[in-house]
């Protein structure tokens, strides 16, 4: 099977840069699977789980909190706002973010547009939290 270069970058560091055969991204318009020779696409990412399938078929999972992906036929770069391997995921950290988002909503000092964005973010986070409980 054809492989391509996948890079997972968070602002703090380069988490992953290797040849993989398949990546599943939680894009804002629905999950998408990226394989080699994908058409050039740029998409935003919602909080969720990124599943990376290596050339040896080994599957690793990462939790990301938003970001965007730059997909080219030769490779895929995922710029995540914050990313952790699924095993190290900290439920408390997610709950803290949910709490922060809720507080921001209650604040009421923001524009409607901003509120909608925070609300969407909140639902996505809650969903993610649900997924993690199931793990």
């Amino acid at each position: 099977m054809a492989d391509f270069n996948f890079e997972l970058v968070s602002p703090e560091r380069l988490l992953l840069s290797e040849r993989v055969s398949e990546v599943v991204l939680p894009a804002t318009e629905g999950e998408m699977t990226v394989m080699a020779n994908h058409a050039p696409t740029m998409t935003t990412i919602k909080p969720g789980v990124v599943t990376v399938k290596g050339i040896d078929g080994k599957v690793t999972r990462y939790i990301v909190f938003g970001g965007f992906a730059d997909i080219l036929p030769t490779g895929c770069t995922l710029l995540a706002e914050s990313a952790v391997p699924a095993e190290e995921a900290d439920r408390a950290a997610i709950e803290k973010r949910i709490e922060a988002a809720k507080n921001e909503l209650q604040d009421g000092a923001h524009s409607d547009e901003h509120r909608t964005r925070v609300e969407t973010f909140l639902t996505e986070l809650t969903q993610l939290n649900g997924i993690l409980v199931a793990f």
């Binding site: 894009a27 804002t28 318009e29 058409a39 050039p40 696409t41 740029m42 998409t43 935003t44 965007f68 080219l72 036929p73």
Partner: peptide, 13 residues
């Protein structure tokens, strides 16, 4: 140079 597909559209991204 590549022609990108934007999802959602470029302005939103």
């Amino acid at each position: 140079a590549a022609i990108y597909e934007y999802e959602p559209d470029a302005g939103e991204i």
